[in-house]
């Protein structure tokens, strides 16, 4: 078989696999839209303008405002990323440039282990350790801050591992050239490593944000789940994911449809995030050239 021929054969399953991924993604969005339609028809703008969230199966006597949960989701995620991004980056720099080789190996294994712990474990830890600690200071403890802290801990390994591999991908000759120019270790990091690895680090932060925005169980356990606009760090709020998890099993009719709408909004948020990331990455590439 000629090389071209075998390549052609390989191409078919690859195309099929790529296409099915795209189709599945499309079908999921289509399902969300389809299931949200009853809510959009029967509830409509009230999803934004109702006084609060008091779902009942019949749209007429319920209230279905989802905006407080959208805002809460964004604030919780922003808090988690603001905490995890610098810490994750610092962890990557330590592991790559400051730790001795033996320490670096052990440290990296630890971070990898942390990355593998499922969200529900972080949530349980938050519920039995973190929330009572925060509660002793300012009850009830379950709060926006608790959720951001638990999520930050959860996504920190993602930031650390991916940005470290981006730093490792910086060509060695850059580093040697920097050393030849007499740059200090920090000088090399600041003016050579970080600018070259910028896109990889950005990808790390975006992936981590995606994980934080979609995390459900860990958030439900520590956030308090009261539907209202965030008014302080120590106030309980409810995230979109938590809303679906808490009520989907018990919902029917327009209530169920409104929950699918929550899911659609969540998917929309993630899409905006990805588009945003693409644009940022693009701009970086141009200025690199």
């Amino acid at each position: 078989m000629s090389p071209q021929r075998s390549e052609q054969l390989l191409l078919i399953p690859l195309r099929l696999a790529a296409m099915s991924a795209a189709v599945i993604c499309f079908l999921i969005v289509a399902l969300l839209v389809l299931e949200s339609l009853p809510a959009l028809n029967n509830i409509g703008w009230r999803l934004l303008s109702d006084a609060n969230w008091r779902p009942t199966p019949a749209a007429a006597d319920g209230a279905f405002r989802v905006t407080p949960m959208v805002v809460a989701t964004l604030v919780i995620t922003a808090g988690a990323v603001l905490l995890a991004a610098p810490l994750g980056l610092a962890s990557a720099l330590f592991c790559r440039f400051y730790a001795s080789p033996s320490v670096a190996v052990v440290y990296r294994r630890l971070v990898e282990l942390l990355a593998g712990i499922p969200g529900v474990i972080y949530g349980f830890w938050g519920l039995v350790v973190l929330v009572p600690l925060l509660g002793a200071w300012r009850p009830p403890g379950a709060s926006l801050l608790a959720a951001s802290l638990v999520l930050a801990l959860m996504i920190l390994p993602t930031v650390a591992l991916i940005s470290e591999s981006a730093m490792r991908a910086v060509p060695q000759r850059y580093v040697r050239a920097a050393a030849a120019l007499g740059l200090s270790r920090w000088g090399t990091i600041r003016s050579v490593i970080l600018p070259s690895a910028r896109r990889g680090i950005l990808t790390a932060v975006i992936l981590a944000t995606g994980r934080a925005i979609g995390e459900t169980l860990a958030v439900v356990m520590v956030v308090g789940n009261i539907v209202r606009f965030p008014s302080g760090l120590m106030e309980p709020v409810r995230a979109l994911t938590g809303n679906i998890a808490l009520e989907m099993g018990y919902a029917s009719g327009d209530h169920r449809s409104a929950l699918f709408f929550s899911g659609l909004v969540l998917t929309g948020l993630v899409m905006v995030l990805v588009l945003f990331a693409n644009r940022l990455g693009h701009r970086g590439a141009i200025s690199d050239a």
Partner: peptide, 21 residues
């Protein structure tokens, strides 16, 4: 409500972790 919980276990842990609950 100050806290809304899902199942019994979640409720029991929430009360066990808060002396004022």
């Amino acid at each position: 409500a100050h806290l809304i919980i899902g199942d019994n276990q979640h409720g029991i842990r929430s009360v066990a972790g808060n002396p004022g609950a």
